[in-house]
Amino acid sequence: MVAASFKFNIDGIEVEATEGQSVIEACDEAGIYIPRLCHHPELPPSGNCRVCTCKINGRHSAACVTPAAHGMVIENDTPQLTSDRRAVIEMLFVEGNHPCPYCVASGDCELQALGYRLGMVAPTQPYQWPERKIDATHPDIYLDHDRCILCSRCIRASRMEDGKTVFGFEGRGIAMRLNVDAQGGLGETQMAAIDKAASVCPVACIVIKRHNYQVPNGSRRFDKTPIGSDIEAKRTRRQS
């Protein structure tokens, strides 16, 4: 059975969508980029980061968890939303410890890339300097909690894709942290470097050992082109 298709409007552009697609999925397919951080195309959405918040039919909603519907009118690329999204990215920068100059993910980091794309020159909210740990107990993976942005990608990947439940949250509010399924650290869990959960981290919290710096700084994913360019290229191709 072919899912019914319908149209909605985003920033004045008509987008075709099919039943069951979220707003972000439909827009991705149409080559319209909605900035996002916790969303991952291969994982069920969770709405943690709120970066993909759009004004949908006049209400602020996260595009990753909002089902596309016929006739929707969506605002995405507006100065207000860009400024709100930048503020959210800034919050993540000051909530954890994110020293780009000596971070292994620099150039490959989705948090950093969104900072660039959304025009953040420097975070100006007060840095929180939380005390967080590094977990190096696993032979092939280390967990650097300083970088964790609580996006839940690894939690979802481990539960849904790997069937392992290696990760979970602990605590609530500003004290919330990523936790692993063993008191002795990641090394005592079922985690393996080939797990989906090991490859979906948008920052450098989950890092596979001995595989870093193979791509030099300057040649990494977001060094030359902004995050989202791949999605936008689909539309450009179609138009030309």
Binding site: N97, H98, P99, C100, P101, Y102, A122, P123, Y127, W129, P130, E131, R132, D146
Partner: peptide
């Protein structure tokens, strides 16, 4: 004008900030 990572977020010396 604040120039460079150290002026902007403390840089390497700020590693002590969590301690």
């Amino acid at each position: 004008i604040s120039v460079g990572a150290c002026a902007i977020n403390g840089g390497v010396p700020a590693m002590r900030n969590t301690i």
